[in-house]
Structure formats: structure tokens, C-alpha cells
Design a protein around this nucleic acid. Sequence first.
DNA 1: CGAAAGGCTGCAAAGGTTTGCAGCAAACTA
DNA 2: TAGTTTGCTGCAAACCTTTGCAGCCTTTCG
Lengths: 326, 326
Amino acid sequence: MPATIRDVARASGVHVSTVSRTFSAPHLVNPDTRSRVLSTAESLGYRPNRAARALITGRTHNIGLIVADIANPFFPPLIKAAESQSRQRDYHLFVADTNEDPVAEEQLVHALAKQVDGVLLCSPRMSNDLIEKLRKEVPLVVVNRPVEGLPAVVMDVADGARTAIEHLAGLGHRAIALLGGPRGSWTNREIRRSATAAAKAAGATLTALGPYQPTEAAGSAACEAVLATGATAVLAYNDLMAIGLLEALHDRGVRVPEELSVVGIDDIMLSRLVRPKLTTVATPTAAAGRAAVDLLLHHDEEHRSTALVTLQTQLVIRESTGPAPV
Amino acid sequence: MPATIRDVARASGVHVSTVSRTFSAPHLVNPDTRSRVLSTAESLGYRPNRAARALITGRTHNIGLIVADIANPFFPPLIKAAESQSRQRDYHLFVADTNEDPVAEEQLVHALAKQVDGVLLCSPRMSNDLIEKLRKEVPLVVVNRPVEGLPAVVMDVADGARTAIEHLAGLGHRAIALLGGPRGSWTNREIRRSATAAAKAAGATLTALGPYQPTEAAGSAACEAVLATGATAVLAYNDLMAIGLLEALHDRGVRVPEELSVVGIDDIMLSRLVRPKLTTVATPTAAAGRAAVDLLLHHDEEHRSTALVTLQTQLVIRESTGPAPV
DNA sequence: CGAAAGGCTGCAAAGGTTTGCAGCAAACTA
DNA sequence: TAGTTTGCTGCAAACCTTTGCAGCCTTTCG
């Protein structure tokens, strides 16, 4: 039913190849012919069929984006930015959600492989070995984990965690708890490593808790464990957990920041709307989305192996941190 | 480079059509042959090329989802549910963001038309006439607006708004302000219509403000206007605006709910985390996402025209509403 | 003025899959 | 036993484009 290139060719009295070139290589066709073809195409409502085009060119003009949880407030800004950047470059974006499941991640890459020119793997939970295997099937860009020889964009959470710990130490905190994120997360390891080092340097003790799911519920559930450490300050794997913790603390009547200081990571939208407003390490998620798309699209094979984009983070001090209780 | 159906055929000593049938119509091929084909396919890492398949069958097994703003907290649960439901049915989901721009909506439908089996149009801002035109290009399901003769899923916001107004009236409020949403939104018109009627029935006055963008910033910006109405209670187009308003009120020192009651609509995640916790009309967004996908996939042409799914809403009373000041 | 160059167009193969049709052998039916 | 059905497989066309090659005509150059 929809008009094909053949219909346009017939209607405008030229060969299909001329119509094809009118769209994919306009400079090769005579301006008069071109405008004639264009106008009949317009009147027939013709639009090139991307699937057919992909079949022969091998380029689909589609990108896959795989995230752990679309509804986790960390991701939407990233998805939005990636989508916007993709479309600006005339690409469409498949979005898929793994529900934090490594197996689903792998299946999704397989399923999307043939349909996209590349896959953006965000905060993957799968092993590096598996990533190595999958990259043979389809070009990959990893977000939130550096992988040897693969283009990646990461946030400098190590620096962020260090800054956060220094901020707390500067407020007099000497016993700090770390609310750990999910197993398999590179970001989590980074935070832990850096926070430990920073605490040591500042003469504070750091008690690591976890692993936990990166959700508000898990943050609330961990309240007990946090209080049990005797810490006067907490650094959480992400804002969602920090906010969950804040909720639980509020319910228990523990005052923040008077009795306990709380720092999150990410600076999601929520963080400046809860009370007390959350002190947090801002990660540039939108920039990450854009960078990932560009990395996928712009980098030719030779450069690709060495491309690692590191985005700076920044401590945003709000109301959930204060001087250590005496 | 990747294995094709032909490679599998050669390696297992059968014709390509047999391989094809092994995957797309297994019951037509001898169990022995089938398992042989399957195992060589497995060892070659063969996966059917969906684009090629789409070319001949006309079914892409892809769905397009168009929303106004991915980062608006209202949408992620809907997107997540739609994605999950799609994948369960062996479909992949394109997600696109229009930035609240009606023109972008139209372009997106055109661009996706050839690549999907249908498009889910969420809270469209475009005119009904345009929708009528676009439906000829690709099957459409509309979310959050009923369109004559088109499958749609809507939330019963009229009932929600009525309930909200009755709740406020029951608390003694007689002057209520309505914080209006964006122009072109069916939901907005519904709310306004129903709230007006409910207010009248309850003997209260309703002052409608707007249109505003459905954002937190717009909610904050409208604070002045709300206070100027002299209302003792506000119903906002959505939670985001209500929360923005809450922020602005807090900054001005207006106490909620003592001096002003605030009700939102949607029950986004944020709403139970802000202080005071927001009283709001919960809309079943995840259910809407699932229903939209099912409507697209299950309904054959004859039923399609009559399919309108209406989802119930529910008032959730929290802390932002209280008795009218005397 | 003749030959070479350049601009434009047509031809046809190719890309990976599905599917109606035909063919064949084995298993039934009468 | 002859004829018919059934189960399985092969053949080849079709889906919509792109693109290397070849051919034509017009210009340009010497």
C-alpha cells in the first residue's frame, strides 16, 4: 500500500536507481530531474524504507540503549539525552530494560544486534568477559564502566567519593558508613576503593555495608545496619538509597543532619526536593548520554579502542550534611 | 560476516527454505531435520535477521513509543511497562521524545512508520485531525486522549478531579484554584471540565489558571498567581507542578496545609517523598503502558475502532491537604 | 575538427528472508 | 493392489533498496 521507490520511478518517468540516488546521493542527479522526482515523491507520500536500505548497506541507522531500570530516576535524563542526540544524527533509539538482570542484558544484546549499528550498554552488570564476547556481534559502547579496548564513558565517581569523604571529615566526622551498591557494578567498586582511601587519609574509619539493590527500598531497609555501625555520617551508592535511608531515619526520629549526615551520589531530580535537601555528588548523566552516542557514531575502528571519556563530578552541598555530633 | 540462513542451510545439508521453516514454522519440518538444523544454527551463532524478515512479511516486530518528555517522572513507569510488555511479546520498543513539541510528534510518526508495526502516542499535543491523517500511515494507539475510531487508553481523570474537589470541599474549602496544564492536552480539558462541575456542585468557586507547561518550574512560577486568587486550596494539573508550587510556597513561608491545601495528579514517585507528602490522584501509568501495547498487538482491524480502555484513578490522601483556614 | 572528459542515467545483481507451489516418498484406504 | 492422502522438502519469486558498471550525450581541449 505505501508508495515504493518503484512507484515514484514510474510516476516520474525515470529509473528506480535515479530515484534512489535522488535521496541517497543527490549530487549525482541532474537538478531538474531531482526536483521532479522529489515533487512526485512528495505527492505520493513516499518515504524510503529503512529496513530495505539497511539490508543492502548494512547500516540500520538505529541504536540500542540498554539500561538496568528505566524507572530508576538516574536513567531518564541519560535516555533523553541519548535519544535527542541520536535523532539529531538521524538515528532512532531502541530502549530496553534489564531489570538489573545480567542474563537479560546478554539476551538483549543478541536480540538487538542485527537491528542496530551499535549498542549503548549502561551500567552493565555482566562480566567483562561476556562483554568481550558480545562486542564481536555488534559495536558496543559502555557507560559507567571502563572496558579494556572498548569505547566507554565513565563518571569520575572516585573523585566524587573522595570529595564527599573529605567534606564529611572536614565537618568532624570520624566514623563513616558506606552504603554499598549492587554486586557487579564498577561504579560501586570505584566508590568503595576511593572512599576507603580518602577516609584513611583523613584519619576516619569507613564501614562498608552491602551489597544492596540500588533502590529506595533497599536504602530504607539498610537503616538498621547503618545505625548499628555507630557512624555519624553515611555515603550512599546513589541518591535513591540515600533518600530511602532519609525516609527510614525520619520515621525513627533520627534527625538529619544533627544526629547523622547523609551524602548521596548522582544528584537526581528528587534530591533537591526532599527534606532535608540531599547533599550529593552530581554526575553529568545527560552529558554521558550524548557522549556515548557520539562515541558510537563518530569513532572509526582505529580510534575506537582507545576512547575513554571521563566526565567530571561535583559535590553539591545541601542540607543533609552538618557538623559531627559531639 | 554474521551467519546467514544460507550458511546454516549449507552446513546442515538442507535447503534454505527448510532452515527458514525451522524457525518460523517448526511444525512443518521433520523433528530430526529440525534438531539438526537447530544445532548447526547454534554452533554457527545464527540469528534470523529481523530486517530481512520484515521486508517480506511486512511485520517488523517493533513498536514505537512517543512521549512528550522522557525525563518527566510521569513517563518512565509507563515506558518501562510498555517495554516489558513488548518484549514479553517478542517486540522491541523505539522510544522517542518530542520535547512537548507537536511538530516533532508528527515528524516522529512519519520517521518511525516504516520501521514499526504501530506507534503508541502518549499524551499527544497534536490535533485530532492530524492524528486522523497519520493513522493511515501506521497503526496508532493513543494514550491519554480518546480519539474517535482509534484504540486508546485513558485514565479517568475526570473522576479523579471530582474526587479531589470533593475531598477539598469536605475539608471546608470554598475557594479553589486550578493550576492548568499545557494547551492541547485532553487530560487538561477533562480535569478542568470535571473540577468546574464538581466545585459548582459543592458550592465552591473554582478559578482556573493557565495554560502552563507541566513542569516543576512552571508550578513554582505560578505561585504568585495562585496566591492572588485568594483560594485556600489548589488542584494542579500534575504532581510536578504541585511540587514546584510546594517549593515556592515553602520559600515564601506559606504553610501547607495550614494556610493552603495542595492536590496533585499522577502520584509520581516523588510525591510521597517530598514534605509535606503530596495528596494526589493516582493514575495507573504502568497499567496504561501495558494496555497500550496489548491494544496495539491484539486488536484486529474490526475491533480496533471501538477499543477504549479507561483506567480508574484513586485519590491518595497524604499531608498536603487539610481543613480550610478560618 | 577530432578526441577526450565529464555529467547524467539505466541496467542488473545483491542483501537475507518468507512462502505458494510442486514433487516425492511413505503411509494409509478401499 | 491401486489409488489417495499425508508429511516433508526443494524451487524460485518476491520484498525494497543500493551501487558498480556501462552507455549515452554534451562540453571542453588541443
